[in-house]
Design a protein around this nucleic acid. Sequence first.
RNA 1: GGCCCGUUCGUCUAGGGGUUAGGACAGCAGAUUUUCAUUCUGUAAACAGGGGUUCGAUUCCCCUACGGGCUACCA
Length: 505
Amino acid sequence: MRKVRVRFAPSPTGPLHMGGVRTALYNYLFAKKHGGDFLLRIEDTDQTRYVPGAEEYIIEALKWCGIEPNEGVGYGGDCAPYRQSERKPMYKPYAEQLVEKGWAYYAFDTSEDLDNIRKQAELAKMPNWQYNSISRMTMKNSLTMPVDEVQAKIAAGDPYVIRFKMPRNEEVRFQDLIRGWVVFSTNELDDKVLYKSDGMPTYHLANVVDDMTMNISHVIRGEEWLPSAPLHVMLYKAFEWEAPAFAHLPLILKPDGNGKLSKRDGDRLGFPVFPLEWKDPETGAISSGYREKGYFPKAFINMLLLLGWAPGNNQEIFTEQEMIDAFTIERIGKSGSKFDPDKTRWFNQQYLRNTPLPELAQALIPLMQEKGWVKEPSYVEGVCKLMMERAVFVADMLEGHYLFQAPVEYDKDAVAKKWKPGESGALMMEWKSVLETVEDFSHDGIDAAFKGFLQTKSLGMGAVMPLFRLMLTGTLTGPSSMDVAALIGKEEVMKRIDQGVKTLG
RNA sequence: GGCCCGUUCGUCUAGGGGUUAGGACAGCAGAUUUUCAUUCUGUAAACAGGGGUUCGAUUCCCCUACGGGCUACCA
């Protein structure tokens, strides 16, 4: 068995969307599991679709996700270059080799010619005209023209393409690692262009030549490639090369309705479809990203792992090593998966809770600074401890604004419902004088004092607690008042009671 | 239209000739909590349909329906 070498081969036509990230992830895990290589190849053979910044985006996105190639564009390696535009000179000899062997031919029909034929065919109710084993004999190519005329045209610099000569009445079959045997008849396949008139190979030629010269052992790619897989299999046969194993991944579908997840669904339904935020260089339109929305890359990846793959037991949270150990291509599902934004949030929540306090604090501090809040790291850890149970994102912990500053306003509804002017203020001042004497200003210490206060006053919790909370936070929600008081400290508590009573009367 | 791929709770899925068809998210209902959140408990919810094969099909085969992908000198 040959060494496992897999590749992720996107085209730089825009930002990488989460389906692409999942494909990269599965390739990465497969490589790691088998001690193989994971390479990044950029398929930029269509100059008209090139989008500036897309390549950098792809590299940065993979880096953020923690699924880095060990070879490829941005990483170097023995098979460099890994950008197809830079490999341009090497494809033509391969195409010509196929012509010599009789597996391909020159064609001089222009795009306009073909457009016209297709239009006419459509008018004649033949909606699917193809350049294939039958129609090619009526076209302008090296199969129908005299040899000297063909050579003259080429010598004169006339534009031409090289097409694959798909044989007739043959069966192409290959075993897909996910779907099992897949069979096509060559009669359904057309004579695909391998080499374009602009001197660039098409995807099909470049892909096969590169996979061969880069020693790729397994091609793991999206299902949209399944229909062209037989052509690729035929190309390997024509070159007399050993074909890699194929695995065609099911698609990621939009959460509502049908169809594959597209760029627009994100904006429409309010969740990102891209790992990183992307600004369209043409329109300036911004598409949101998981990173900017505050997702942990590990949570994002964990969600993607389970979208189309299952371990067979009930495990849902995976460390990277666990993913690598558990992953097998055989356990990838066959059908498309609808993306679920809610579950994605759940994964983030799980990861947030499993993040150690110091790390959480480090993540929160920059967000606090944006609000102008500055606290000691140890204090911020205390904030995180109180807030993490009610947060999905790190930024959610900012909702505990009262842990950073005294309340600037008091919730109107809460005041109307709980605060009795005069009476409530007097009660709070009394409670304050008790608090002043508390030596152990911890949750338990304050709690003990509070219980004692209730007893001497013969009051229930509901009569005092909401008022105290209102003094401390300005709201009626949040972590335990005792915890809040302990964290902000005695002096601050005293000040807030004074301020609250003064404000509310 | 043609070709190819697919179809288990609303969603992601486990399972696989004989099961109370399991889990998770979301939902609903309770309990705990001074509140919100958490947590816990419970609850509802699925084998697309029709034919076979079989003692027995959700599981194997065929057909239909539905969904998806592809059908460019795009990838």
